[in-house]
C-alpha cells in the first residue's frame, strides 16, 4: 500500500495538535515504528529493531519510534521498561495526530519514508523482520 503526503502538512499538523513534532529529512530514508504499551507484538518487535539500529545508522537509515499511548504516564512507564530496546529517537503521539495521518492498518506498524513519500509498510508482527525490512528497503531504493 502506498501513501504520499508532504513534509509540511505532517509537520504543521504535528505542531498544532501533537505533543511532539515529527520532522523528516527529505533525502534520508527513515523507518517509522508505531508502537504502544498495550500491544504485545510491539514488545516483541522493538528488540528486533533495536538490534538493527546500529547497522542502519551506518547506512544512513534513521529509525524513529512513535509511541501512540494516549496517556503520557503510560508512554513513559513503557519506554522506561523497554529502554534497553529503544536506542533510537522516540516521539510521544498522545493526541494520535501523527498516527492519524499515517493510518496504519495494524499494530505494530512500520512505515519506510523517503523523499516525503511512504515507499513501504509493514503492519502487524513480522516473523522475519530483518529480511522483510531489507526487502522493503531495496524496493525503496529502486524507486525514483
Amino acid at each position: 500500500m502506498k501513501k504520499s503526503f508532504t513534509l509540511a502538512c505532517v509537520a504543521l499538523a504535528s505542531t498544532l495538535f501533537a505533543n511532539e513534532t515529527l520532522l523528516l529529512e527529505k533525502e534520508k530514508t527513515t523507518i517509522l515504528s508505531f508502537f504502544a504499551s498495550w500491544c504485545p507484538s510491539c514488545k516483541k518487535e522493538l528488540p528486533q529493531l533495536a538490534k538493527l539500529h546500529d547497522g542502519y545508522k551506518k547506512r544512513g537509515i534513521e529509525i524513529i519510534g512513535i509511541d501512540v499511548d494516549k496517556k503520557l504516564e503510560d508512554a513513559h512507564k513503557f519506554q522506561e521498561k523497554m529502554k534497553e530496546h529503544l536506542p533510537f529517537k522516540v516521539l510521544n503521539d498522545t493526541s494520535n495526530t501523527i498516527v492519524g495521518e499515517y493510518k496504519p492498518l495494524g499494530m505494530p506498524a512500520i512505515f519506510i519514508v523517503k523523499n516525503n513519500e511512504v515507499c513501504a509498510t509493514i503492519f502487524g508482527a513480522e516473523e522475519h523482520l530483518e529480511e522483510r525490512l531489507e526487502k522493503e528497503l531495496q524496493t525503496c531504493k529502486e524507486k525514483k
Binding site: F34, W38, K70, V99, K103, P104, G106, M107
Partner: peptide, 11 residues
C-alpha cells in the same frame, strides 16, 4: 475502530 485505538480492548 482504528488499530491504534485499541488500548482499552487490549486490557
Amino acid at each position: 475502530v482504528q488499530p491504534w485505538e485499541k488500548a482499552t480492548l487490549a486490557k
